[in-house]
């Protein structure tokens, strides 16, 4: 069986922009590290900070939330709701001591496959150099 890949990075991608950008990266045969695992939501506004905390809890080394650019949201302003939540979540993650490089909110339109690839490469490099996220368990 193939080796488990590290680090592991969870991507929440909105159906209309960012998921489509990842599709476009595929169609264009771009290359990016395989460590990014995509979970599709209809809108970045569906992403609950709880999922991101859960992901870190379960061993994610990084989390990327990707949505449409402001003004371009398929649901008018779901991405703005994501922006509000993630702005506060960022401070909470800092409180937990999670390095800021491990969590990103990015606006990636359906045509911005290159932007996704750039973000993925950056995140991969940064997280690789931070090493795995180790949480303290019980006593």
């Amino acid at each position: 069986m193939s080796q488990d890949l590290e680090p592991r990075i969870v991507v929440f991608a909105c159906n209309w922009c960012s998921y489509a950008a990842l599709d476009l990266a595929g169609v264009s045969r771009m290359k990016y590290p395989p460590n990014f695992l995509v979970i599709k939501v209809m809108c970045s506004g569906r992403v609950d900070p709880q999922f991101i905390l859960e992901a870190f809890r379960r061993g994610a080394d990084g989390v990327l939330v990707a949505g449409c650019h402001p003004g371009d949201c398929h649901y008018i302003e779901g991405n703005i709701k994501a922006l509000r939540r993630m702005t506060l979540l960022r401070r909470v993650l800092e409180g937990f001591g999670i390095e800021k490089e491990r969590f990103r909110l990015e606006w990636i339109s359906a045509s911005e496959a290159e932007k996704f690839v750039r973000v993925a490469n950056e995140m991969y490099q940064e997280i690789k150099s931070l090493g795995p996220l180790k949480l303290q368990e019980t006593v």
Binding site: D48, P49, Q50, F51, I52, L53, E54, P70, E77, I80, K81, L83, R84, R85, T87, L88, L89, V92
Partner: peptide, 20 residues
């Protein structure tokens, strides 16, 4: 799932601005 996570989710959501 996570009290604080849920709390920041609803609280941040109602902050009525679009500008970062």
């Amino acid at each position: 799932i996570d009290y604080g996570g849920k709390a920041i989710s609803y609280f941040a959501s109602i902050v009525d601005y679009a500008d970062e």
